[in-house]
Design a protein around this nucleic acid. Structure first.
Lengths: 177, 177
DNA sequence: TATTGTTATACTCTATAACTATA
DNA sequence: TATAGTTATAGAGTATAACAATA
């Protein structure tokens, strides 16, 4: 922040066209590396890439993994609750659950007291797979630790929680009129 | 990490169906809040939401803002270089630049020495808008600081850079056959 | 009247292949 | 032959509106 904002005595010190030297120009990203949003995006892509590389062998994507976890920890949950908890629109959760159900990982159980909704449960296969995925997930986290240290990872989580809590809850469905 | 992995003396302590009590069930997210990937996604969505809310008045999206910055800092850059610097596929950059050009914010200048490529420059309008956007961006960052403190923001950036550098460079185009 | 799950649909992002004109 | 920009297209992810069944 020691940059004199607008003064500019010498008309902006324009560098010559960047493709002149033709020497593997490093390309100046300006303020981008100092913007939290930009770096969050880059980091998320990097981490998801590692996640994806491991989980593709099981044909599981991040959203599916999250849903499996939530159902496992809250057996009997209804779709609208999963939707709310994970910020997934009700409408978009349908196909995701169809997939999990067709693969025999989760099931929709009719609820006697409310015939509109289903109680969600993991199948035994689903629970077994989730256990395996948990191990992969732990290894994945350790790979993050390998880059910034375990204390760094903990600190990162702490800061991310702070950011999320502040801007936080972005309504899962809301205004449907 | 003080959880005895598999032992489970009492057959897993299953809670009753989560929609029994019907008391605004809090819903257990399990390990999700401890996963860097999950929290990165939530944080990115939260921050982008704030960013978007401010920038929509100027009809500028994150990727467009990044491109404007890079062109401004590296006048004369070619499209493939922007593509490489920002991890945007060459093909997807075309429409983005078309938009900026049609709005009179950037321009493609033919290069005499290589008639296949264009040198990218901001127009005066583009430079003026970018200056304004920079101010909004600074305010946006300050809003992040307001949640986790300026030292927290700096630390967050440091950790994100660490993560990105490690997994890092995910080739902007690459294997096209 | 409101809610649950659903369908249909659309829009943005991103990814791949193939084309053209140049080099 | 390789490269820069382009086009077309397809796939995820996400968003809204409207419907049937049920509350």
């Amino acid at each position: 922040m020691s940059k004199t904002a607008n003064v500019r005595p010498k008309r902006a010190v324009r560098r010559p066209d960047a493709n002149d030297g033709r020497a593997a120009a490093p390309i100046d990203l300006g303020v981008l590396p100092n913007l939290v949003g930009y770096m969050l995006r880059r980091a998320q892509l990097a981490v998801f890439q590692d996640f994806w590389r491991v989980y593709e062998a099981y044909d599981i994507r991040p959203a599916q993994y999250a849903v499996l976890i939530v159902i496992d920890r809250n057996p009997g949950l209804r779709q609208s609750q999963v939707s709310a908890a994970l910020n997934i629109k009700r409408a978009n959760l349908v196909a995701l659950l169809d997939s999990l159900e067709q693969r025999g990982l989760a099931k929709r159980v009719p609820v006697a007291t409310d015939r509109r909704s289903y109680a969600l449960h993991l199948t035994e296969d689903g629970a077994a797979l989730l256990k395996k995925l948990g191990e992969l997930s732990a290894a994945h986290e350790q790979r993050v630790s390998a880059t910034i240290g375990e204390s760094g990872r903990k600190e990162l989580l702490r800061l991310l929680h702070g950011v999320v809590q502040a801007v936080g809850s972005s309504a899962p469905d809301d205004d449907e009129s």
